[in-house]
Simulated assay, not measured.
Amino acid sequence: MKITCKRQQLNEAVLNVQRAVSTKSSVPALEGILLKTGENEITLCGYDLELGMTTKIEAQVEEPGSIVLSARLFGDIVRRLPAETVYLATDEKKITSIKSGPADFSIVGIPAEEYPELPAITGETSIRIANNILKSMIRQTIFAVAESDAKPIHTGTLFELSKNKIRLISVDGYRLALREETAACGEETSFVVPGKTLGEVLKLLSDDDTELEIQIGRRHILFQIGNYCVISRLLEGEFLDYKAAIPNTSSTEIIVSTRSFIDSVERVSLLITDRLKSPVRCVFEDGEIKVSCSTSIGHANDQLSAKIDGAGVEMGFNNRYLLDALRNTEGDEVKIQLNGALSPMKILPREGDAFLFLVLPVRLKSEAQI
């Protein structure tokens, strides 16, 4: 294999593809990036048997071929090359020469035959959606994906497709995030995409309204985002019946400035550390939200004005879970619905129902409020 390409394009491709490479594997090839020539282009591929990513960049191909190079070493080399162009050549012993300006490296490669094939998608269902819409949907739900493997299915986000709607749902036992948009999806189907995959897809999505294609197979999903193709296995199992977890009624409704509420919770949270955990106490009544916190190093009190309809209520929350939900609302004001001290807090947009977040309360100790 002999090729010449632009260093900047190669560096960007390696940086992205590298994220799908296995950091530690019993198959040495999986710790590398597969480079394969095409017609005036080179394909780069990273794969860890669960998530795969491929992309193509322009290249002058003098001699076709393929090689697997250590992702860590190749990435470090490309990032530090001095000139605008890069020359790559691989000999029959799989020694790969990388030249750029005065810099010249020789590294040992692995035969491409040892690299596992990416799974093929039998495109049973295919949908198109704008980059910026999918980006917003993932961003507003990924924070509630479970981090522990207690229920592996909840380490992913549930996608529900109907004829004219796409809905994403994440749950982790303490909170729920739901986001829906109008989209022409065709047939009704549902599947669960790993949170890790969505994290990588999120980094590749742009802020414009160009469309990307999603192909859904029986066990795998493929995202075609510009020059990048992300393929992932789907999670199997029984996802939580989230509709049953959403309260249908509320006794208190609050309209509040999102920024003001975030600032207030952040202020009283200064007393909370990994070692000193304590719930944030919120009292909703008389047009005010009183926020307080008490730990062994001190007490903090704050308050902000809000429009409150219904019965007054006092609740406790994990500060991180409450802040995660508020920070992902993407609106100046939010509507909060409560149904007593032990029912989940429901956070909605002031108008419409594009998203819905649930945050479970923490049972407060019965002593008087500080």
Results as ranks from 00 to 15, higher is better:
2 K>D: 13
11 N>Q: 15
15 L>F: 07
19 R>C: 14
25 S>G: 15
25 S>E: 09
31 E>S: 15
34 L>Y: 09
36 K>D: 02
38 G>E: 10
40 N>G: 08
45 C>Q: 15
45 C>I: 15
47 Y>M: 14
52 G>T: 14
59 A>Q: 05
60 Q>Y: 06
61 V>A: 05
62 E>N: 12
65 G>R: 01
65 G>S: 04
66 S>W: 02
67 I>H: 09
68 V>H: 15
70 S>H: 10
73 L>G: 05
73 L>M: 13
74 F>W: 11
77 I>S: 03
78 V>N: 09
79 R>C: 03
82 P>D: 14
84 E>K: 14
86 V>H: 01
87 Y>C: 12
94 K>A: 12
95 I>Q: 09
101 G>M: 06
101 G>Q: 07
105 F>V: 01
112 A>P: 05
118 L>R: 06
121 I>A: 08
123 G>S: 10
124 E>K: 15
125 T>L: 09
126 S>K: 14
127 I>Y: 02
127 I>F: 03
128 R>P: 00
129 I>L: 13
130 A>H: 06
132 N>W: 01
139 R>E: 04
140 Q>P: 02
146 A>D: 04
146 A>R: 03
147 E>G: 13
148 S>Q: 06
152 P>L: 06
155 T>C: 10
159 F>V: 08
163 K>D: 07
166 I>Y: 00
167 R>H: 11
167 R>Y: 09
168 L>I: 02
173 G>Y: 01
173 G>H: 00
176 L>V: 07
177 A>E: 03
195 G>A: 11
196 K>V: 08
203 K>V: 10
206 S>R: 15
210 T>N: 08
211 E>L: 05
217 G>A: 10
217 G>I: 07
218 R>M: 13
219 R>H: 13
221 I>E: 01
227 N>I: 01
233 R>K: 14
233 R>S: 06
239 F>W: 00
250 S>L: 00
251 S>C: 03
254 I>L: 09
257 S>I: 06
257 S>E: 14
258 T>H: 06
258 T>Y: 01
262 I>Q: 00
271 L>R: 09
274 D>M: 00
280 V>A: 05
288 E>A: 08
293 C>L: 15
297 I>C: 06
299 H>W: 11
301 N>L: 12
304 L>I: 12
310 G>H: 01
311 A>F: 02
312 G>T: 04
316 G>Y: 10
318 N>C: 13
323 L>T: 10
325 A>M: 10
326 L>M: 13
329 T>E: 03
337 Q>N: 05
338 L>H: 03
343 S>W: 07
343 S>V: 09
349 P>F: 01
353 D>C: 00
354 A>Q: 10
359 V>H: 05
366 S>Y: 07
370 I>M: 08
370 I>A: 11
